[in-house]
Design a binder for these strands. Sequence first.
DNA 1: CGACCCTGCGCG
DNA 2: AAAGCGCGCAGGGTCG
Length: 563
Amino acid sequence: MYQLVTRTGTDDVIVATLDQHGSPSSPSRHLSLNEFFRYVREQERGTTRWVWEDTARIYPVLLNQDIRVQRCHDLRLCHVILRNSALTAESEIGRQDSGRWDSPVALEPSGAPGATLFDLVEADTSDGGPEESRDHEEFLLQLRAITGADQPGRLRLLVAAESAGALIAAEMTFAGLPFRTDIHDDLLTRELGPRVAPGYRPERLERLAAQIRRDLGDPTVNPDSPAELLRALHRAGVPATSTRAWILKELEHPVIEPLLLYKKLSRLLSANGWAWMDSWISGSRFHPEYVPGGVVTGRWAARGGGALQLPKQIRGAVVADPGWKLVVADAAQLEPRILAALSADHTMAAAGRGSDLYAGIVASGVVDTREHAKVAMLGAMYGATTGESGRLLPRLAQAYPRAIALTETAARAGERGEIVTTRLGRSSPPPGPAWQVVQAQAYDTGATASDESRARTQARDWGRFTRNFVVQGSAAEWALCWMAEIRKELQALPASGSGFDTVPHLVFFLHDEVMVHTPEGLSARVESIITEAAATAGRLLFGEFPVDFMLTVATVDNYAAAK
DNA sequence: CGACCCTGCGCG
DNA sequence: AAAGCGCGCAGGGTCG
């Protein structure tokens, strides 16, 4: 059963109960906000799926009332999937011009001062008709697109997983990641020196800058300016071609060591220093905003605070509350395992069975070291052609012809400008008009050699994108299913309360890694939930195909201790 | 002053 | 300017 929720005014919500085909099964209810809250609590005692325009805007309002829901259907996120999917290309949604449902991301929830979240759900009159029927029509189109598709089961799973992800993202933003500013401050002080006003260099950085100037014989060079720094290096006889750390590492000169250290510390200060702490940590929690579906492949993005780039350097400040633990799990060699399953490559799947997949490749005698196995696999999935990775590829292709054929097929499709599709049905965007123009030019009678080479380069670039899209996107689907399953099982635990300060809950997600903050006594149970959920996710995507999704799981007090 | 691009680097 | 995918962010620099 579905309940379609439409906001129509500051204190007005319309809820329509729909049957499995999306038809209203009773007259709509017009509720005030408070009545709506009560209604949601009531309905959550059963199983209902809430259908609404945008989880990111409506769910925080419920979370604020200490209300969590089990299931939803996010019209905006699902629309994007169905409009672009090759599996629903012939549906009405697939044929539509882009409209209001295609606008990428909603308004900033924290937008205008004094505005409530609901105020920001702007009335849209351009399509005519009241919002409720607009949402209802969209939902019907989505249900029809799914039902009419070749593989409705896959799409059904995908839209459910995507929507569950939206709930999880809102919950993680709301609950926040436990973060100790005192530990962070100690770490910054130890590395950089005592805190100074913005715009000034802390003591240790200032000393390094002075040393760099001395070593370069240039009393004024600003090490934060790549252009200036490069000129100064040249004047000092250092043949650097750029000021990137990995380039500098190859060079011999007294300035290199202090310079590399300066770069490292200066990055810490600018990306995760005191200013970052002031902006993003409140109440001992880091509250980044996650953006489900923010990446074309279906991965999440994040906005503000660089949540998905939290450096290893500062993970020691992510600390469980007293009496609580962090359970951290990451999927080992996720993408190669996904590739093995996608291509039904039994040999590659066997290499990863019950063990490190790269070690399994070595044990099979395909390559000689784990490092080679890794670089070869990554190269195969990213489209490397030269270097060590390129040299190792033929061996991989010989040992795992099915897996490599899948990546090659995806690359060729992209080079022809075609779209590719993940396991559950998310399709890549077609290349834009500029791409098509360049390709067309190469076939023109007057095409020059440079037209042709430009077209070839561009085609290969797009091929590398589609090659990777299939694997990265399917891995993202696996991760969503994994996380949705974890959430479901955590919610099913007997609870001593309802708030995030009493029950185990997800607090972090990083593509192939999750973190649960849990009362200490439940950590063993949480570990097994996470482990079982990985196997469940594998079955949801790949049925009985015998591929293992191995995890490393650790129960720790702080994030740095995991791994 | 903001808008924009470039460089560089963090994460998977 | 990594040999090859996907991101976000900060600071320098330029332009209007």
